[in-house]
Design a protein around this nucleic acid. Structure first.
Lengths: 153, 153
DNA sequence: CTCAGACTTCAAGTTAACTAGAGGTCAAGC
DNA sequence: GCTTGACCTCTAGTTAACTTGAAGTCTGAG
């Protein structure tokens, strides 16, 4: 009863990860995951790829791009199970970024609740809109708002 | 010295908000902001539009789509300065979403630091990868990973 | 009144992250 | 040893959020 096959087919990996086969191929093209090939040219994956995929999904959920995720994953070994050390290194890299994102969210949320409650949701007072944007990098332009003596509210 | 013009041109709004004119037109097309027209068909904006834009930028920074932002902004009045009440309503709507996002980020961060430290970064133990995804809605597929008795690490 | 610069619309191009389809090959149960 | 479903590559299409460009109009300082 060998229910722990050494290598997974793309279908099995897809099934277990919830990531469509097309996307798995796409990720491979982007260098986010890797595979070996059978003599018949079919992909076979290490079971550790599941963990990589889980990580990718988690990171995407919080808004990081595949590019950034790729950079992070590049520090992990392709061919062996990452050690605690490997993950720790990755962790350090992202600590600031994640912290900044959490901060931005807190600001948005708190302004919307507490700050609204206190009536200060005004551009000239709230730090929310004038924070500089350590990450995100949504558009190329700077999201710098200079209110210049606002009127009402 | 009338340095508080009642209406802003698209250039002025762009200058002050940091959002390119093309994007401002795009936002208007998407219904995120609105404008009045001069007799010569040029756009003129309420100064309150600055606040709307600031809000849009802030929300985008934390990963919300223009669609969701639109829905939220739709609850604000177009033609008058929003009251504290208006913003409070919007706030309530987003509270859960923002909380969930903050949660997801905390999980990702904490797993990468604390959890890595304790050596438990394993799919079968960590909640990180199996959380259900209340928001994000990145892809259509479900990011549901079912580890099924993992091997190493 | 003129004219440079800011504005207008409309159509098309761009990037990220996929997704779909065509046309062909591989693998495994009977 | 054959057939069926899973797999392969490659090209092209999709959506979100913009950006670029062409061709023409408006505004306001002089």
């Amino acid at each position: 009863m060998p229910h722990l096959p050494v290598r997974l087919t793309i279908g099995q990996l897809s099934e277990r990860s919830g990531v469509p086969p097309t996307t798995l191929r796409y990720y491979e093209e982007r260098g986010l995951i890797s595979s070996e090939r059978t003599s018949g040219n079919q992909r076979r994956y290490h079971r550790g790829t599941l963990r990589r995929l889980a990580f990718i999904s988690a990171a995407q959920r919080v808004g990081l791009t595949l590019g950034r995720i790729h950079d992070a994953l590049a520090t992990l070994p392709d061919n062996r199970t990452p050690t605690v050390r490997d993950w720790a290194r990755l962790s350090e890299q992202w600590q600031d970024e994640l912290d900044a994102r959490i901060d931005a969210l807190h600001r948005l949320r708190d302004r919307l609740s507490g700050c609204v409650g206190c009536g200060c949701l005004s551009l000239k007072v709230c730090g929310l809109y004038n924070q500089d944007d350590a990450l995100a990098a949504k558009g190329p332009g700077a999201p710098l708002l200079k209110p210049a003596s606002e009127g009402g509210l």
